[in-house]
């Protein structure tokens, strides 16, 4: 653990109230993730892995504990600063893609840049470049309903990259995809890691472990295992779907 870790979490707790009972989604989590790593957060449903991901992404506030991401202590941020943190530091990838149905692929990718105040022309140019990276430049003008699940997820990945965030957080990115599409998404995520980003993926798919440099296992809101391995180039999956 160094001062310059990408993620430093200590004594993190998140408690929900479900009716009259309290649910401890996270029950004292300590975690450090170094820069330029590919971490996989594993655990069964209800283990608190998604909750941890969202707290790291600043989408929710912890009940107690401290989160420091990229040298920023999230506790000290007000709502506005937290929004700027999400904008600049984090790129989210969701299981259900969360594309805006009325926008085409290009517009969906460009959308986050409009909050930054980048002019329309530049937004579209950059969005097109990113669609090229995920191999979807030919489908730029298609609406989400005209794209396959895998293609939608690749659009969502391109969207996560528009503001050049150092940290990519993915919640079950392959959960809604067939095996081939899932492989392609994984390959892109690996490439993002290789390009210098820190990638954290929440999944219950054990197969992902072999691409990871870090494997964190959660159970009942606690970390039960944290393996750190050296990244193995051989583990990069081969593309099974033509881009």
């Amino acid at each position: 653990m160094t001062e310059d870790s990408m993620i430093q979490v200590s004594a993190l707790r998140k408690t929900y109230r479900m009716g009259t009972t309290l649910v401890h989604a996270l029950d004292g989590v300590d975690l450090t993730v170094e820069r330029n790593t590919f971490s996989v957060l594993l655990g069964p449903s209800g283990s608190g892995k998604s909750t941890l991901l969202y707290l790291l992404g600043g989408l929710d506030r912890p009940t107690s504990g401290k989160i420091t991401i990229n040298r920023t202590n999230l506790d000290t941020l007000d709502e506005n600063a937290l929004a700027l943190y999400r904008r600049k530091t984090v790129g989210f990838i969701f299981q259900s893609f969360n594309l805006i149905p009325t926008m085409n692929a290009l517009e969906n990718v460009a959308f986050p840049m409009s909050f930054v105040g980048i002019p329309s022309g530049q937004r579209k140019k950059k969005a097109y470049e990113l669609l090229k990276v995920v191999g979807l430049e030919k489908r730029a003008l298609h609406k989400p309903t005209e794209l396959s699940g895998g293609q939608q997820q690749r659009v969502a990945i391109a969207r996560a990259l528009v503001n050049d965030p150092p940290l990519i957080l993915a919640d079950e990115p392959t959960g809604n995809l067939d095996t081939a599409s899932g492989h392609l998404v994984l390959q892109i995520l690996t490439e993002l890691h290789q390009s210098g980003r820190t990638v954290l993926v929440v999944t219950h798919d054990e197969r992902m472990v072999r691409y990871a440099t870090n494997v964190v296992r959660l159970l009942d809101g606690r970390i039960v295992d944290h393996d750190i391995t050296n990244f193995d180039d051989a583990a990069v999956p081969a593309a099974q779907e033509s881009r």
Binding site: E79, A83, R86, N98, I100, P112, F115
Partner: peptide, 16 residues
């Protein structure tokens, strides 16, 4: 609602 969540996730402020 989900779209609002997404906007916030990609960096929209409350004011946006």
């Amino acid at each position: 609602t989900r779209e609002i969540g997404l906007m916030k996730a990609v960096g929209a402020t409350n004011r946006d």
